[in-house]
């Protein structure tokens, strides 16, 4: 099979250099896995997007016009380009990786179509990267403890969730987030369990509260023209490789989140850095409140951003899979 592969030199823009997706997966995948699996025929030179001088949300437009061939990016970063890009990453939608993957699989055909028709992009893979959870300065006993707290938000659906818990939302640029948490400009920040642990948010916060606010769901994509120009064998090979990468990332998300939360709270951590945070698990009552907020704040907010047809389509796919109905109010 390898012999049939043509010789190819490709270029890709990877995830942010601080993400575990880049450090623990993509870096080796592009440097070793692809050349090995292709018998040395295919080489992809990859660079994290921040090292290339990019911010993130513009990746899609660069893929669209062919300035980049292949790229990965957090799909909800591009929600401003199309609200469907946050459809599987809504705050409070799912609590574990298998459920998140069910939502993704249900919605994949929609995203494949939107990417291709509207953005000239071939969608190659989709997977959750890390559970977005609450890191708070104070003791958090339950969902009601978030009431009145200043919570750092970074997208619209998280803002809807924060409104739902009656917190007050603050927007603070990423670089100022940790000092802001340290000094109390914000009482809580939301970030990935893994990235928060790696960036040592446990130095400046006390309670970890796993009310999921999305997954930082990543997508891999290619410029459609560049993709169509590839020989069919190469397409099959690359599609297969990206699907493998997708599976790996989903596994890493589940295991990584678990380990990061153990280490941030100093429970059976094998890593040299351990935090002393308290983990407040989501109780059954909290979970009911989550569903309530999802139905009354997050989904209606998104349905309004997305419009009628888009909402109907979501209800027929993700909604049916998870037993939820989105409705604009």
């Amino acid at each position: 099979q390898d012999a049939a592969l043509p010789e190819l030199q490709l270029r890709a823009i990877g995830a942010n250099s601080t993400f575990n997706l880049w450090t623990d997966l993509e870096q080796d995948w592009y440097a070793k896995q692809i050349p090995e699996a292709s018998g040395g025929q295919i080489a992809i030179e990859a660079l994290p997007h921040d090292v290339a001088g990019l911010k993130g949300p513009e990746i899609l437009s660069f893929l669209q016009n062919g300035a980049i061939q292949f790229a990965s990016q957090a799909i909800s970063y591009m929600a401003g380009d199309d609200p469907r890009f946050e459809a599987v990453d809504l705050a409070g939608l799912t609590l574990d990786v298998p459920t998140a993957m069910r939502a993704i699989d249900a919605y994949r055909p929609v995203l494949e179509r939107v990417m291709a028709e509207r953005f000239n992009v071939k969608l190659l893979g989709l997977a959750p990267m890390s559970a977005q959870v609450f890191w708070c300065r104070d003791q958090i006993n339950d969902i009601d403890s978030l009431k009145g707290k200043k919570i750092r938000v970074f997208n619209a659906s998280l803002t809807d969730l924060v409104n739902g818990v009656q917190g007050s939302s603050v927007t603070i640029p990423f670089v100022e987030a940790v000092p802001a948490l340290q000094r109390g400009v914000a009482d809580c920040g939301v970030t990935g369990a893994i990235s928060g642990y790696r960036a040592k948010w446990y130095d400046v916060t006390k309670t970890l509260y796993p009310l999921n606010s999305g997954w930082s769901t990543m997508f891999w994509g290619a410029n459609l023209d560049a993709w169509n120009a590839l020989p069919p064998e190469a397409q099959t090979f690359l599609q297969d490789q990206y699907r493998q990468m997708e599976t790996r990332l989903a596994e890493m998300a589940a295991a990584g989140d678990e380990q990061a939360m153990r280490c941030a709270t100093g429970q059976n951590c094998t890593d040299s850095h351990t935090g002393r945070m308290t983990l407040t698990p989501l109780s059954e009552a909290d979970n009911q409140r989550r569903l309530d907020i999802l139905q009354n704040h997050v989904l209606p907010g998104w349905a309004k951003r997305c419009g009628k047809d888009c909402t109907d389509e979501w209800n027929a796919t993700v909604g049916r899979e998870l037993g939820l109905t989105a409705e604009a109010r």
């Binding site: 250099s17 601080t18 990423f174 670089v175 100022e176 940790v178 000092p179 340290q182 790696r198 960036a199 040592k200 130095d203 400046v204």
Partner: peptide
Amino acid sequence: PSINLVIYGALTNSSIP
């Protein structure tokens, strides 16, 4: 405060405080 130290912290997973 220092933007560069915050970015160094993010790049190397070092504690910003």
